[in-house]
Design a binder for these strands. Structure first.
Lengths: 233, 233
DNA sequence: GTATTCAGACCTGTATACAGAATAAGCCGT
DNA sequence: ACGGCTTATTCTGTATACAGGTCTGAATAC
């Protein structure tokens, strides 16, 4: 019996939902997708059901599965949830992170800080790694799990957003880390807040741009998002 | 074609996981459960997969589905995640909640405040309703969805915990609401923090008591948790 | 030209069958 | 009596079949 087929399908389809190879609102044809992924509909549907529970897809009884459509409000909701979680994580990091761990993260920023010559995909991987490392300092698996889920769901919008923030990002990360190293809880939280919060019009712009790329641009190549280890190379 | 069978199964099994009719760590026999719920294994497994993604169950390839086992740390993690979310929601409620909405919530507290003669299940429903109403003031669906999930997963422990907090709860709720009505953000957040935070030994006590009820007490009757409308009656 | 209806194709929802792994039971040797 | 091995049983993982919705599109009426 093949080991972990549902998990593999889940990972594949999740990636497709994240980079919108499955277009927002698009219906998923189970037979076609199962052929493409070389499995039958039974494990495929199990994976799809997981993705519904995780918020990547929607399901309508009798109609089937659809890639989730994101309104400006929904993207904003996710940014805010991220803000709520990271605020808490920053506070906990101030209390719990070891000096050595923080020094290592500082070295990481030194290593990856210069945005020159980096692809957006690399920069995004570095960015998420920074934030998820801080989240890991909270020593709370649920915080990490939830943050990873939220980050994945807004990854495409952040990828667009990052274009106009390349310069600011590094400095802000450095400032956040310095505040944590100085064990200054209030400052750390305030900096995280300022770093993550987006005005509604900024989000609206990203969503508009997203739609333009996906539905107007006719030869759009989907970004190849990377995990940290893939980006290091 | 019956409409929404997977959703129905999901709701049923979710309820079983919440009140631990499925014991922590227990393996789920798919054939037996599918007979009991009068469906075949296919939709049953789809529902189980959703519950895995939501954190109620675990899955081991080749072994099957298991009800999730909660360590003290894991319960604490969930309490903290709840704290992170409710802090944020309280801030937003201060900014966004209409006076009329807040007055209505105050009336609710008046109506349900006296713990005398109420079952623990009713009090817990009232309690969650209060918190989820405040979360709804944040006008953020993801906040609401995530909070509902976290609350469900720690419901059993809160049910145990509530026994020793009957008296404090009402007053603390009242104070939180007053702070929001006074549009005092700092005070509201501080009060929410104090209301939700638990010391590790308090959580350890609840987990211990939970195990005692489930595995030692031989004729334990599982609580019949209620939604708000069921509790009103 | 536009709206409507009906037929056909397509697709989903669920049950069931079957292969193979995991677990339990039985047996034997010590 | 107890531990290890072998066998039998149980249960999971996946494919497939089929019943009934749902959607598409052509033909018809206006």
């Amino acid at each position: 019996m093949s080991d972990g087929l549902v998990e593999a399908l889940h990972a594949d389809i999740r990636a497709m939902a994240i980079d919108f190879r499955l277009k927002p609102g698009e219906r998923i044809n189970e037979v076609a997708l199962s052929k493409r992924l070389d499995a039958s509909r039974t494990p495929l549907r199990e994976a799809l059901n997981r993705l519904v529970a995780e918020g990547f897809l929607t399901f309508e009884s009798g109609k089937g599965f659809f890639c989730r459509k994101y309104s400006v409000t929904e993207v904003q909701d996710l940014y805010q949830l991220r803000q709520a979680i990271e605020r808490f994580a920053a506070e906990r990091a101030v209390e719990l992170a070891a000096d050595a761990e923080l020094a290592e993260l500082a070295a990481f920023l030194d290593r990856t800080g210069d945005p020159a010559g980096r692809s957006l995909e690399d920069l995004l991987a570095f960015d998420e790694h920074f934030h998820e490392t801080i989240a890991s300092f909270s020593q709370n698996a649920e915080i990490g799990r939830t943050l990873a889920n939220v980050n994945a769901r807004i990854r495409f919008f952040r990828w667009i957003d990052l274009g106009s923030r390349r310069q600011r990002t590094q400095g802000e990360h450095r400032a956040i880390l310095d505040a944590i190293r100085a064990r200054d809880k209030g400052k750390a939280v305030a900096l995280v807040d300022g770093h993550i919060a987006r005005r509604r019009d900024e989000i609206a712009e990203a969503v508009k741009e997203c739609h333009a790329r996906l539905f107007v641009e006719d030869d759009f190549v989907h970004p190849a998002f990377k995990t940290m280890d893939q980006a290091c190379a």
